[in-house]
Design a protein around this nucleic acid. Structure first.
Ligand SMILES: [Mn+2]
Ligand SMILES: [Mn+2]
Ligand SMILES: [Zn+2]
Ligand SMILES: [Zn+2]
Lengths: 143, 143
DNA sequence: TATAAATTTGTAATGATTACAAATATAGAA
DNA sequence: TTCTATATTTGTAATCATTACAAATTTATA
């Protein structure tokens, strides 16, 4: 829940390092992901940015997320069964989604499959551990 | 890939044991899941059954899968980012989806989180490990 | 049989995502 | 700077998965 303060310069350098031309829209999307760290949907990103960028198109958000995903700047989470969620690729970590409030939490130090390159002859390129249940906040409010 | 031969009686008993009234449609859906073991989408199930049950409605497939999921007879896999997939709940296992052919494979003996009831104060009710990459068949055909 | 409850069905509505072409912005050459 | 090619963004329409819902059918019960 720590909201980070991320400079535009940092984001710009990050994009350039990954071979992505740092347009204003792309910087905005990645900056949003980094400082909110809330695993947002396309629509959440769009709605939050369109107030600052009135000309922003939903298609641009889709395009940007697809591009950043291909360049492995971000990862696409299929944990929600209603829409895709997006996350910055930093430290490897897992995710927990609350069945009550829907919020997605980062989980560290549960799984470590970093050395897993192959299983049953399949070449593994990506792995996600998805946990679901009731989050600590929602458990609290049951009292 | 072993196609199982499942008797209707077995499926009927399975449903009754879980408190689900074994209608013809429900038996058909669960029997399909059990003997194909192919982690199908709603549409795959519908298209395969409608030839035998011409009056079958897609809504019935949706209703049945929702009911069986609630009764924990089946599990809903969110591994594909285009549609939901369904699986019988038997031995705990993980899944690998091939980025090339799209097929979903069962993976056994990778993860064991069966004792994990709580993490960071969140109550865990369900967990899924999703692997993605290139499957052994598709690797073969690259030669 | 008559009636109520459960289940199935078909259609319409919703919501997420993709397709696509026009508009705009950016970069490089002259 | 101006011209031109390329990259990016935008808006709209189309597609696909899923849900809502009420009518029709089946099943259970009196
Ligand atoms: Mn995360
Ligand atoms: Mn499986
Ligand atoms: Zn919660
Ligand atoms: Zn494959």
């Amino acid at each position: 829940m720590k909201k980070l303060r991320i400079s535009i310069e940092n984001v710009k350098n990050l994009l350039e390092a990954k071979g992505v031309k740092p347009s204003f829209q792309r910087i905005s999307v990645l900056k949003y992901l980094l400082q909110e760290n809330n695993h947002p949907s396309v629509d959440t990103i769009y709605k939050n940015l369109v107030s600052q960028i009135p000309t922003l198109s939903r298609t641009t958000v889709y395009n940007t997320l697809k591009l950043l995903s291909e360049k492995e700047v971000i990862s696409t989470l299929s944990i929600s069964n209603t829409d895709l969620r997006f996350d910055f690729v930093g430290e490897p970590h897992d995710h927990f989604q609350c069945n009550t409030c829907g919020k997605i939490y980062d989980i560290y130090e549960i799984s470590d499959f970093s050395e897993l390159k192959t299983v049953d002859g399949h070449q593994v390129q990506e792995m996600q551990l998805h946990l679901k249940g009731t989050c600590n906040r929602c458990l609290e409010s049951l009292n």
